[in-house]
Design a protein around this nucleic acid. Structure first.
Lengths: 150, 150
DNA sequence: ATTTTTGCAAATCATTTGCATATAT
DNA sequence: ATATATGCAAATGATTTGCAAAAAT
């Protein structure tokens, strides 16, 4: 099968598959392309719809499987929006946090300088042995701030 | 209808309903009871199952509606577990964060002393006007740490 | 040649909705 | 009395699964 797609940066996604030893199928490259083209976060349904609209012939299950796979490889993160929706964002594999624009959905990664102190403090107070943490920030991105209302 | 339940502390839940002007129905008291009896976090399905097992005759929809209501009143928080599951935990209405035990599911609330500095720093670096944040911590609680394996 | 992937349709879950009836105020 | 709340069954949505066919190694 042949997919007709553009040239967004699928490299990090495809490279992750390769390094982990997964097969580099046409379909996975196509899904990587759909992901790379996205601005801001997107849902599984968004991709399924996009694939359908473009008649790519990629099955729903395949898209879910690819999303799971990329998420496992840490090149895609699944966000739980405050609305309860599940959205995805491509990202760096290293530990980091996301700043999500509540207007346009675009996200940026942020390092948690100084957060370790806070985590340690909470560990001390609660007696928990903290293993992981997740910090999510919501606000208005620079571009949207520059725009009047919306 | 008459429900036969124990005496867990439903007060904060019921009081919240009352203060917000919602009707104090038998059914809502019963759901509050089911919630208050829980140790650790629970899912909507857990409560539905519990209600069914005890033949309380509370409909599924009613339970979902009650959960939504308590969550709106900030006496119950909906957590998005790393597994993707949605769980709930009763909590104080003030801003806080949860420390979740990855073994038994029990949670504790934690104040974010020092977190504001981190948030401000991220705001400065990213240019976002941060509106809200959510910090979730996962680890092993004191009780579970004291227990050998599990 | 063998193992991994895929598409499809059906199955499974989670959550919501419409609506007539019951209940709290 | 009147507005709210409830139960039920059906609708909707999201995600998963089984499996035979197709593609990658």
């Amino acid at each position: 099968m042949q997919y007709h797609l553009g040239m967004a940066d699928t490299q990090p996604l495809v490279a992750a598959l390769d390094q982990a030893g997964y097969r580099l199928t046409e379909t996975r490259r196509a899904v990587a392309e759909l992901i790379a083209e996205r601005e801001g976060h997107f849902t599984a349904a968004d991709l399924v719809g996009e694939a359908r609209d473009r008649r790519l012939g990629i099955g729903r299950a395949t898209i879910f499987r690819a999303l799971d796979l990329f998420a496992d490889l840490n090149v895609l993160e699944r966000l739980d929006l405050p609305t309860g929706e599940h959205a995805y964002v491509p990202c760096e594999p290293a530990h980091h946090h996301h700043v999500v624009c509540s207007r346009c959905g675009r996200t940026t990664e942020a390092q948690d300088h100084g957060l370790q102190v806070v985590v340690d403090d909470i560990a001390r107070r609660t007696g928990f042995a903290i293993e992981t943490h997740r910090l999510e920030l919501y606000g208005i991105c620079p571009a949207c701030r520059a725009t009047p209302a919306r």
